[in-house]
Amino acid sequence: MNVIDRRRNLGPADAQPLVFAAPTKQQTQSKNNKTSKEEPTSKKVFIETGTIKTSNGSAYLEHDKTIIMCSIYGPRPNFTRSFNDQATMKIGVSFANFIPVENLSIKSTNSINNVNNNGEAGATTSAESQSLEVSRNELEQLIQQFCFTNYQNLILLQNYPKSSLEIMIQVVSLNSQHSFIQLLSDILNCVNVALVDSGLQCKSMASCGYFKSSQSKEQSSKGDVELLVNMASDQNEILGVYCDLNDYDEQFKKGFEQCVENAKEFKTELAAYFLGCIAGSNQ
């Protein structure tokens, strides 16, 4: 039997494996320090307004490799036969084609989970709740419905009769580590900023707060808890709540309060930014 390695799978008989130098102790420490600096507990959010010149208002939000763009058009003429005493609002959500949405699973216990679910997949974090994998179109519909119920009460639609407003949301990039609720909170914040930039008459400037129990290092027996609250004003007016909880227990209450605090903090930052911008441009 011929034992010659004709295909050179084994390599030369006198070959020696490569040996890399072991890292010193000082290098290991510096690498650890660098890692801790690069990954803080809360990622910074980058926001820019007025990115789309042809729109009435636009915003660009970047949060930990998740990029969202929002543009607002209107009021436009609405040619319907019947007289509309207030504006009609249309919301369009689109994911970029190359974004994998398989990681975005929603739980069946959500109150607004009224989309058609194709099947069940993924590991469940609790006995009661089940992660449901939904298609791209269903995700877009879900975000669209939630945004519509949020902003229907925020925008003063009665001041724009016989017209239509369009809010276009584009998810340009998505961090695979982000969950659906975290993505939804980023989308809401992007729309909130774009609304202020557009100059549409609103009841208030809204902001969205997000809470995840694992972020606060609180591991419960039921698994991670995610929650978002979209706030409308300083009067604690709530536009929308999205959560994946079964029991509205103490953990929900704690998460809710944390969301409200986050929303108020975010709104304070935004207000200071906008007021600084217009004060600078008006001088």
Binding site: V196, C202, S204, M205, A232, A279
Partner: peptide, 8 residues
């Protein structure tokens, strides 16, 4: 009276 205001 504030000189510049935000919505709400």
């Amino acid at each position: 009276v504030p000189k510049y205001v935000i919505p709400g």
